[in-house]
Amino acid sequence: MSTLTLIAVCATMLVTNFLSGLFGMAGGVILIGLLLVLLPVQQAMVLHGITQLASNIWRVVVWRAYIRWDIALVYSIGSLIALALWSLTRYVPDKAVAFLMLGVTPFLTMVMPKNMRPDAESKPQAIGYGIGCTGLILLTGVAGPMLDTFFLGGKLERRQIMATKSVCQVLGHTVKLIYFAGIVVDPGTVDYLPAGLAILMAAIGTAAAKPVVEMLSDKVYRLWANRIVVSVSAYYTCYGVWLFAGPLFD
């Protein structure tokens, strides 16, 4: 990785983690989008996986008393099934597919019929979401919005949701690392300097957001959080379509 790319990656990490700390969402989605612009798909997935693992492992440690291990265990069966299925094909999405899926994902949960209510305590659903979310992580690098939908269905309390979701995210990103750094035909390498810097930037960005969070009014938060998700998703969808359509006009 060139020095210029390394500086760009560090700046990206800092800004996206600041945003993530501020709004409690969207950081991972923006980060993977920018990494996909800067790096090849495999390298972007590996670097993204390392930073997401670091932040989610920290959450697991902090909230460990509230983890619903029964749900996490069943979900992990789904994750492993997804890894096995993907490993058979060793499919690596090209950037157009990754961007398109990344752009459409937040809207998938909005168009789900109301009567298909997710239930986090249903074992068949936990396996289904394990397969779906892990498959999505291997396609786009993230599955946060879909996972949120699953955990908000059912009767889990707030801390159980955060804790158990973090365990599932650790699983998903571990599967992503195993897949993109080990299983695919041309795996991405783990470059330790960018990985270490990425984790450092994540910590600085998140800490810098804390005082700003205190100043942010609740209404301003809601307005901007929605704007960010819609704008980022729309941009990714358009960029994905453009990447698809570009070769047609060559």
Binding site: F23, G24, M25, G144, F151, R158, K219, A225
Partner: peptide
């Protein structure tokens, strides 16, 4: 006590 992140739960709002 109630501000959460990832998932950001807008319980208070």
């Amino acid at each position: 006590a109630w501000r959460t992140s990832c998932p950001r739960l807008t319980v208070w709002e």
